[in-house]
């Protein structure tokens, strides 16, 4: 092996950015080439010294921001192309949340039909008594919406990628087309520094997580009306036909959204809390 081949890759080798096979060739050569070993040592020394020397800690003057903004604002106002406007994050979020909300509508409907009425006195329900949730019908439309052209044979990876892209979140909703879903648990995740409430389901023994909404609305709960149950505070927002309910359980925050009335969603949240209490007591 020629020394030039090795020396051409020394910076990449030092930065640990060579492919494993190439790195092994460099190491092998260095073990028997004194010239290249010396060159490598010189590179280590000069690389760090020069890098530090090139770096600057100069600070821009405070007036620069105003100057830049003034210039930008004076630019002729231009209309941005349609794709930009249509891909606005708000639009994507609404689409994503609408789908999640539609799913929850069915969850709430089925649950409300088969479980106890609003604010049950005995809230320590047994998990095994919870009904099996039949989401087959809605799941089919969900898949059709999400997979679009892959109507008949939706590819799981494409579906996940599309949902993630459209929601701006790492969506892990999977396998919603069977009627063997069982609600297991809820949690809050930090995704991109944003709290995301999730519901965990069991699907044929396989854990499935459905991201319900992004937690950005958690940042502004003060304007929302409160509802209380057993001392627990629920914050409810109702816009149009979409209801959002937020609450804290210990250090966790939860958010549920659905196209149902606030009392209906409140009942669902109470049941969900009861399930958590039951799980805590059992754990």
């Amino acid at each position: 092996m020629k020394c030039k081949w090795v020396q051409d890759r020394m910076l990449l080798y030092l930065a640990d950015e060579l492919e494993r096979r190439e790195a092994a060739r460099v190491v092998s050569h260095l073990e028997r080439c004194e010239v290249c070993t010396t060159t490598l040592e010189e590179f280590v020394e000069s690389r760090d010294t020069l890098r530090d020397a090139v770096r600057t800690t100069a600070q821009p003057p405070a007036s620069l921001d105003a100057r830049i903004l003034e210039t930008v604002k004076a630019l002729p106002r231009r209309r941005f192309p349609w794709p930009v406007r249509l891909s606005d994050w708000n639009t994507m979020r609404v689409l994503s949340l609408a789908t999640g909300a539609a799913l929850l509508l069915l969850v709430g409907f089925l649950w409300g039909r088969s479980s106890r009425p609003l604010l049950p006195a005995n809230r320590t329900e047994v998990v095994s008594e919870r009904p099996m949730l039949d989401l087959a019908a809605l799941a089919d439309s969900h898949l059709v919406w999400a997979s679009n052209t892959e109507k008949h044979t939706p590819d799981k990876k494409i579906l996940i990628e599309r949902l993630s892209r459209q929601s701006g979140l790492r969506v892990t909703a999977l396998e919603m087309k069977e009627n063997a879903l069982r609600l297991k648990d809820g949690a809050i995740l930090q995704i991109k520094q944003v709290p995301v409430a999730t519901l965990h389901y069991d699907w044929k023994g396989t854990p499935v997580t459905l991201a319900q909404a992004d937690g950005m609305r958690l940042a502004q709960p003060t304007s929302l009306p409160e509802m209380r149950d057993h001392g627990r505070c629920f914050l409810i927002q109702h816009k149009g036909d979409l209801t959002t309910i937020l609450w804290c359980e210990g250090t966790d925050n939860f958010v549920l959204m659905a196209r149902v009335s606030p009392p209906q969603l409140f009942a669902l949240a109470c049941q969900f809390c009861a399930k958590l209490q039951k799980a805590e007591a059992a754990g």
């Binding site: 051409d8 020394m10 910076l11 010396t38 010189e42 590179f43 000069s46 020069l50 020397a53 090139v54």
Partner: peptide, 25 residues
């Protein structure tokens, strides 16, 4: 990218650290 940085480092080394042995990549 690597070649550009390498070239730049060799050049700066020759100018700023003349006492050092020259690196010949």
């Amino acid at each position: 990218v690597s070649a550009r940085v390498q070239r730049a480092l060799v050049h700066l080394r020759e100018r700023l650290l003349p006492g050092k042995k020259r690196v010949k990549p």
